[in-house]
Design a protein around this nucleic acid. Structure first.
Lengths: 169, 169
DNA sequence: TAGATATTGAGATCGAGTCTCAATAAGGTG
DNA sequence: CACCTTATTGAGACTCGATCTCAATATCTA
C-alpha cells in the first residue's frame, strides 16, 4: 500500500473530528491516492464501481469534502470559464503547487514557485490581511499547441521543478 | 452617461464580429457599468427588471458572454470552493487585476501587482508555454475579521494601489 | 454484546446555466 | 421608405453537477 503516512494522517483527522472510520472512507482514500493528477467526483465514483466496490455517488461527494478538510486533497475548478466540475487531487504533506493550463488542449502542468508565496505575503501585508492560501492558474499555449499545424493531445499532469526563488513584490 | 469610451469599444466589437446592436445589449452594457464590483447574472437580471426593463434571463446570460469576449467584462468564480455562480465585473481598457478575498466576511479587495505578471512570464518560459493570462486569488482574513470579537461586515470591493514592481521569480 | 447514533444508499431535489423554437426586430437592399 | 433575410429575443423546458431526505445499516462506546 502506498501513502501510509498520509493514511495515518487521515485516520488521525477522522478521530480528532469525531468521525467514524468506515470502509467507504478508506476505499475512497485508496482510490484518490491511486489516481494520477486531477479527477472529478463522477470519474472517481465510476473508477471505484469498475473495481467492484459498492459505494454510492452521495457518499463519494460527502467524503471528498472530508478529505479536503483533512488537508489531504485539494478541490478546485481548473480551466478558466470552462470549469463545470470540481477537480480533486491528492496532496502530499501539505505541499502547495499551482497550475499552468494549456488553453488549447487542456494539458495541466503543476509548478511550485517560491516567488508567488513571497508575493502573497507582501500583498496581504500591504492590505492588512492575515495571509491564508492562494490559487494561481496561468493559462497559455503549450509548446505542442503553439506549434503551427499540430493536432492536440491531452497530456498527463506533470509535477515540475520549482521555478524562481526571489522575492517577487 | 458614463463609460462612453467603453461603449464605443463594445459597439466596435459587435460590428466587427457581425453581431447586431440590440436594445437589450445596450441596456446590459449600461447595467454592468453602473454596478460596482462583482455581480452575478441573476442579480444583474433582477436589477434590470427592477428598473422596469424587460429582458429575459436567457438574454442576460447570452450577452454577458459577448461582453466578456469584447474584453469589457471579466467572468470568474471567486471564493475558493464556495463558488457556485460566476461573477462578472466591468473592466476599463483591458486593465488586469487580481483579488484578495476575506475568508470570513467575503470582502473583496482588488489589487494590481507587476510582480505576478513577471512571474507568469518566467513560469511560462520555463515550461515552454506561450503566456496567456492568469487568475490569482489570495484568501486570508481582513483586519476587521482578524480582530478578536469583531462582527463581520461585508465591504465593497476597493481598487488598490499597485503593490511591488520587481521581478518576482 | 447491546445500545446510541453517525453513515450509507437510492432517489428526489436544487440550482446555475443552456437549449428550443416561434415571434420579433435589426439592418441591408432595391 | 418598404421589404426581406436572418440574427436575436423570450418563455419555459432541459441539463447535469452537487446536495438533501430518510429508512436501513454499520461503527464505536460502555
Amino acid at each position: 500500500m502506498t501513502a501510509n503516512r498520509e493514511k495515518e494522517q487521515f485516520l488521525a483527522y477522522l478521530r480528532a473530528a469525531g468521525h467514524r472510520v468506515t470502509s467507504e472512507r478508506l476505499a475512497l482514500f485508496d482510490e484518490i491516492f491511486a489516481q494520477h493528477g486531477h479527477i472529478d467526483a463522477e470519474e472517481l465514483h465510476a473508477a471505484m464501481r469498475s473495481r467492484g466496490l459498492k459505494i454510492s455517488r452521495a457518499t463519494v461527494y460527502r467524503n471528498l469534502d472530508l478529505l479536503v478538510l483533512s488537508g489531504l486533497a485539494s478541490k478546485q475548478r481548473l480551466g478558466g470559464t470552462g470549469d463545470r466540475r470540481f477537480l480533486y487531487e491528492h496532496l502530499h504533506r501539505g505541499q502547495h503547487h499551482d497550475h499552468l493550463v494549456c488553453a488549447s488542449c487542456g494539458r495541466v502542468v503543476e509548478f511550485v514557485s517560491p516567488g508567488i508565496v513571497a508575493l502573497q505575503t507582501e500583498i496581504c501585508r500591504a492590505h492588512g490581511f492575515a495571509p491564508g492560501h492562494h490559487t494561481l492558474e496561468i493559462r497559455g499555449l503549450c509548446n505542442a499547441c503553439a506549434a503551427p499545424g499540430m493536432v492536440l493531445g491531452l497530456g498527463r499532469p506533470v509535477v515540475a521543478e520549482p521555478v524562481g526563488g526571489g522575492i517577487g513584490v
